[in-house]
């Protein structure tokens, strides 16, 4: 499922029960200029799979929370949750993720990744992955990164002739593009690119 949120506000809940051997792929891009609380709930049966990709640009004083909760109920289930964000203003951007592996979900495999680039000293961001594991023989890992631009990367790009602003713009787009590119619906991908251009990215 592809979701492009450009004018959303308030709470949104997306829930799936994934049957044995089935797969859900959720790609969600958020460019809304407002407060947002998005909850994703996924229950995985034996041998089922979930791939969740989220990208969000937080502007102004917005407060946004993305909470991805994946429950591995069945054995040999698989999940990936990848969240990328840009916090441009003085708002708050929070990526929360919980992977729960139930007793009996042996052989399951889960990974969560979250990263936020803060563009302003007033940006407040949080990346907080949680793994709850109740069985043996599982793979579970997470990665979290939070920060401003890497000054070495900016200097490298500038040394090849790109201005500081252009270098930052490329790095910013670079962190969101993998999500845009994974939209199955190409017209939605084009719309996302157009909207990104509209907010100066």
């Amino acid at each position: 499922m592809d979701v492009l949120m450009s004018r959303s506000a308030g709470r949104t809940e997306i829930a799936y029960d994934v049957d044995e051997g089935r797969e859900v792929v959720l790609t969600l891009m958020d460019l809304s200029p407002s407060d947002l609380d998005v909850a994703v709930r996924i229950n995985l049966a034996r041998g089922s799979r979930a791939v969740v990709r989220i990208a969000s640009v937080c502007t102004g004083k917005s407060s946004k929370v993305f909470d991805v909760n994946v429950r591995h109920e069945g054995a040999d289930s698989y999940s990936r949750a990848d969240m990328a964000g840009i916090n441009q203003g003085s708002g708050e951007l929070r990526f929360l993720g919980t992977s729960y592996i139930a007793n009996g979900a042996r052989g399951s495999d889960t990974r969560q990744d979250g990263r936020v680039t803060n563009l302003s000293p007033d940006s407040k961001s949080e990346v907080s992955p949680v793994l709850l594991i109740n069985d043996n023989d599982v793979k579970a890992s997470h990665g979290a990164a939070l920060g401003a631009y890497d000054p070495e990367a900016i200097y490298y790009m500038m040394s090849r002739g790109l201005t500081e602003d252009e270098s930052k713009r490329l790095i910013t787009i670079g962190s969101l593009m993998p999500v845009v590119d994974s939209f199955a619906d190409r017209s939605l991908a084009e719309e996302a690119k157009r909207l990104l251009g509209g907010i100066g990215l």
Partner: peptide, 22 residues
């Protein structure tokens, strides 16, 4: 600035070029 120097025709091959994901 570094980018202006680059556009003036200067180039430095870095000893350890940084990885730039994305």
């Amino acid at each position: 600035t570094a980018d202006q120097r680059s556009r003036k025709g200067m180039f430095m091959a870095f000893q350890n070029p940084p990885d730039i994901p994305g």
